[in-house]
Write a protein that binds this DNA or RNA. Sequence first.
DNA 1: TCCCTTATTGCAAATAATTGCAATAAGGGA
DNA 2: TCCCTTATTGCAATTATTTGCAATAAGGGA
Lengths: 157, 157
Amino acid sequence: MSQTDEILDTLRQRGYRITAQREIVVEIISEAEHHLSAEEIYQELETRTPGANISTVYRTLEVLWEEGLTCRNDLSEGKIVYATREHGPHIHLVCRRCNYVIEAEPEVLNQLSEVLLANYQFRADLDHLSIFGLCEQCEDDPRVEDPHNKQSQSTRR
Amino acid sequence: MSQTDEILDTLRQRGYRITAQREIVVEIISEAEHHLSAEEIYQELETRTPGANISTVYRTLEVLWEEGLTCRNDLSEGKIVYATREHGPHIHLVCRRCNYVIEAEPEVLNQLSEVLLANYQFRADLDHLSIFGLCEQCEDDPRVEDPHNKQSQSTRR
DNA sequence: TCCCTTATTGCAAATAATTGCAATAAGGGA
DNA sequence: TCCCTTATTGCAATTATTTGCAATAAGGGA
């Protein structure tokens, strides 16, 4: 069964109604090579079947995320991005200074996952986690001179 | 030296200008008992010195966060909330289904912190991390019946 | 297959957050 | 202390996301 159908089936089993809009949104995310913003998904939806509304896209994405069927990440791109949980998986180390994103192995979180479950009975979504912090370059930067580093910020890499 | 002055001093040392607006925003966050939204900070700023603009608040909060002087969290409250890093510290386990938040000990992340630094040269901000997932109740919920659980959702706890 | 219940949608309005730009003012140097 | 540079602000407009509500339609039952 395809990725798309698996997700739709899960939704159906959980009592959600399968609408044309939801089908296509799931299809778009499943087929995507990389993560997509709500706006991008809406644009693609428009080309496939015009007439839908972007609030439907937002609501569909919310359902998919709440049901654990997609991941949703703030990668400092100015908007939230979405992808299937099969995409990747990797955790995102996002530099809060230069916005550079390092993709890290999710295995580093295995122990944490167990601890949170054992100590807090919390089943954490750790594949695709976003963690903010400082990359090596920003950590080493002498802060006093050019603290905002506007020029090199965008072209640092 | 007070919390407020420490933060302002750090900003000054890093080349930022200390404006009246920034002073008060830092003061408000430092004195706060709990995390605050940008809007709440703006309201408080208005009572202390009217005339400032909320975009200044947003920009100040961005600087403070980028400089590692405050934490910024999405706790599923519909808006981002801010607090000093001294507040707490604790990590937030946010249930993606019922929005319940468990406050967990940051110590569970000690090992992760070391691994990220050693393997990726990334200095992660792990105190005050938000992690989404499922709480015990939502994990155990039979999904097929009443998947949205609207009634009990808000009153579950 | 048709009908009924009610989840879902489209729309418009509201809220949250960001941004461009001209005016202002912080802080270093003379 | 005054001046100059330029970071920061206020304002208005823009973008991102959410929400209330009436109309629509999915899916189960007769």
